[in-house]
Amino acid sequence: MNDIWLGLLNAVRLLVSLDADLFEIVLRSLQVTITAVIIASLIGFPIGAWLAVNRFRHRRLAIALLNALMGLPPVVVGLFVYLLLSRSGPFGVLNLLFTPTAMIIAQVIIITPLIASISHQAIRDLWSEYHDLLISLHATKWQRMKTLIWDARRSLLTATLAGFGRAIGEVGAIMIVGGNIDHLTRVLTTAITLETGKGDFALAIGLGIILVGLAIIINLAIHIISKTERAGTW
């Protein structure tokens, strides 16, 4: 019990004193995750739109596969990316293992299916609303996708935030490919794991508070967006 109180007190002290180590870690977390979320959105939105607008054989299978990919265990993704980037792997020459780039790659793989799947649902709903109009106006496939992505942007923001929430709290994959190296690849989740293992609760709790705070903000934002979305105020 004493440990926790002491940890909490120290955590607050670290937070208010803008502790350099703590903020370096927070910044790196945000940098890695935001980059991954942007890349995953740029890949996921068009996939979602493409699946919504196109009729093709095995379309249902493709969607089922996408939904299954959402449940990929992060550790397995980490292992996979590790093997690809390791010295003897196909991309070993790039020397990316144990860098933030490797962590971004792993996160992109983890959250792209999630973002694509949520986007697909949102865009499919909008497509059923717009279908006759866009066919009537003779919009090309590409114009349809662009229009739907743009007009569904509120829901797509929700998809992005969901991806962010998943990525920022992820630890398994980035531990493997990032290595949790101090001042290089240490982020919120890997630092918490490490500090907890060492029994240094102050930093761990401080980082935990920030992580929880971020999660709350993200979920509030999703809530507010989907509320305005339903009220038609987009």
């Binding site: 909008l126 609303e129 717009y130 006759d132 109009l133 009537s136 003779h138 229009t147 007009d151 569904a152 987009w234």
Partner: peptide
């Protein structure tokens, strides 16, 4: 196709 237009019974208004 470009010289025709269609107005539906329930207007389709874009989210714009």
């Amino acid at each position: 196709r470009k010289r025709q237009a269609f107005v539906f019974q329930t207007p389709i208004v874009m989210r714009r």
